[in-house]
């Protein structure tokens, strides 16, 4: 990561430094990232900056992306798995403008993928960096609101409380009903909130070749999972961790092995299941796979009042 000192970001007349943040800030954040990588799963506090978008829209993520971006990078931004949602489009455009870097929607082509709520279906490769936007970095927040106490619990590896949440699930629903932000134990040491990704994506963190950097802008915390790190989802001996299963397959590409979104088509309750990862779906469609109702979305759009 060589810094491009003092270079004005865009040739189009905007007087921003390369990738918006100034070099000193980027340097400070990079140091925090290194610390986070050195202690997998540990939440490192950092001086979060004001960014030109509201808290909750990815202020943490774009600070990481801005700090690690180089001119040769190719950026992909997804939101809930989709490349074409408002937030993804704006963040992608933002970096195209202030850093003049190449962007892509193809997972395999990207060197940095900023994301919210999903990890792409396509396997990640060595060298790729996932930047994940995090609303609440503290996995035990709901049961123990005192930050001073949770920090102590992390320090002493007291994670019984995390299992209390899973116990409650089983007591009330008969199975572990947590489906997103499912807590994981990283490298056998720190319990980590993998941000609100569905638990479907949890196994993708385990021994991944890619680097995962998590950042909560409002909460001012950065944590990371370096490549080839053990990431175990917490569970009970008699209630092991299980992925959710879908009875449907994607209506557009027919995939039965991807995480599906439910799309409501009209007021009569007509619904459709499609891949949440739009790039994955498009690649499959391009590859000749056809689902049960490939034109449903387009038809619904045309028919909309």
């Amino acid at each position: 990561m060589t810094a491009s000192t003092g270079e004005v970001g865009a040739a189009n007349g905007y007087d921003y430094n390369f990738a918006y943040l100034d070099e000193q800030t980027k340097r400070a954040i990079r140091r925090i990232i290194l610390k986070a990588l050195a202690i997998p799963g540990y939440q490192v506090p950092f001086g979060s900056r004001e960014m030109p978008l509201p808290y909750g829209w990815g202020t943490g993520g774009i600070q990481i992306t801005a700090s690690i971006l180089m001119k040769s990078d190719v950026l992909k931004v997804i939101d809930q798995g989709a490349d074409d949602t408002t937030n993804a489009v704006s963040i992608r455009n933002f970096f195209a403008r202030v850093a003049s870097i190449a962007t892509t929607e193809k997972t395999a082509h990207a060197s940095i993928i900023q994301t919210r709520h999903r990890i792409p279906e396509a396997p990640l490769a060595a060298g790729q960096i996932m930047v994940i936007q995090v609303p609440i970095p503290e996995p035990m927040r709901r049961l123990e609101p005192r930050e001073i106490e949770t920090r102590k619990m992390h320090a002493l590896k007291e994670y019984g409380l995390m299992h209390v949440t899973l116990y409650e699930d089983i007591a009330h629903w008969g199975h572990i009903a947590t489906t997103y932000a499912y807590p994981v134990l990283v490298n056998g040491r720190y319990v980590m909130a993998p941000s609100p990704i569905p638990k479907w994506d949890n196994p993708k963190l385990h021994q991944s070749e890619a680097t995962f950097i998590f950042c909560a802008g409002r909460e001012k915390r950065i944590y990371a999972v370096p490549p080839f790190t053990d990431v175990r989802s917490l569970d009970f001996e008699d209630y092991p961790f299980r992925l959710q299963s879908f009875t449907q397959s994607c209506a557009l590409c027919g995939s039965g092995q991807s995480y599906l979104d439910e799309v409501i088509l009209d007021d009569e309750g007509k619904r459709l299941y499609v891949c949440s990862d739009t790039d994955f779906c498009a690649q499959r469609v391009a590859g000749g796979h056809v689902g049960s109702d490939p034109d449903a979305l387009a038809a619904a759009k045309d028919g909309a009042p």
């Binding site: 299992h163 009970f236 001996e237």
Partner: peptide
């Protein structure tokens, strides 16, 4: 119990 390591529901 969970705090001292019980992991069997």
């Amino acid at each position: 119990l969970m705090a001292v390591g019980a992991r069997h529901y």
